[in-house]
Simulated scan of single mutants.
Amino acid sequence: MQAQTTVPARHHGRSEWRVPVWLGMLFGLWAAGIDRTHGASEVGATVLGLVGAAVVAVLCYVLHREQPRLEREARAGAYGVLFGAAMGYLLSLSGSTLLKASLWGLMFAGIMAAVSFYVFYTREV
């Protein structure tokens, strides 16, 4: 008689939001800190941080939910685009020119896409 193995059910709910919320909070605090350092008002920096946190948290959550439906290459590209856009935006807040922030964002996107693809390629069955 064989032992029956069961695959644990994927739990949806609060635990699924944990990582996206933490990433959003980290991004929002970072964005607000940069904005405040560069002369924005306390209220303006706080609003920017809250909006940035909400946007990043929702995008991370949506990507996490949709990733099983994506091919390995598309999934790696999506992670790269999200990370590159976030880092490029933070660089633009810090006073970098649009061109410099865009080029750094593209570089970060390419690196993240390559690393993500490697992880997905070597870890999937």
Rank of each mutant, 00 (worst) to 15 (best):
M1G: 14
Q2P: 10
T6F: 10
T6G: 06
A9P: 04
R10G: 11
H11P: 03
H12A: 15
H12L: 15
G13H: 05
G13D: 07
S15K: 12
S15Q: 13
E16P: 03
E16N: 11
R18V: 11
V19L: 14
P20Q: 01
V21E: 04
V21H: 00
W22H: 12
W22G: 10
L23S: 10
L23K: 06
G24R: 00
G24F: 02
M25L: 15
F27A: 00
F27C: 00
G28A: 02
L29Y: 04
W30K: 00
A31K: 00
A31T: 04
A31W: 00
A32Y: 04
G33T: 11
G33V: 07
G33R: 04
D35C: 03
D35W: 01
T37V: 11
G39P: 06
A40C: 05
S41W: 03
G44F: 09
G44Q: 14
A45T: 10
A45I: 06
A45E: 08
T46R: 04
L48E: 08
L48I: 08
G49R: 07
L50W: 07
V51P: 01
V51E: 11
A53I: 00
A54I: 13
A54V: 15
A54R: 02
V55W: 01
V55F: 02
V56H: 01
V58S: 04
Y61D: 10
Y61V: 05
V62N: 02
H64T: 13
R65Q: 12
R65F: 13
E66N: 05
Q67W: 05
R69C: 06
L70E: 05
L70Y: 09
L70F: 12
E73S: 11
R75H: 10
A76C: 08
G77F: 03
A78K: 13
Y79M: 10
Y79D: 05
F83E: 07
G84N: 05
A86T: 09
A86C: 12
Y89L: 08
Y89I: 04
Y89E: 05
Y89S: 06
L91S: 01
S92F: 08
S92Q: 09
S94H: 03
S96T: 03
T97N: 14
L98S: 13
A101E: 02
A101S: 13
S102K: 07
S102V: 12
S102T: 14
G105W: 00
L106G: 13
L106M: 11
L106H: 07
M107P: 00
M107F: 14
M107H: 04
A109W: 02
G110E: 13
G110C: 04
I111T: 09
I111N: 02
A113R: 01
A114V: 15
A114T: 15
V115Y: 09
S116I: 03
Y118Q: 08
Y118I: 14
Y118W: 10
F120E: 11
E124R: 13
E124A: 13
V125K: 02
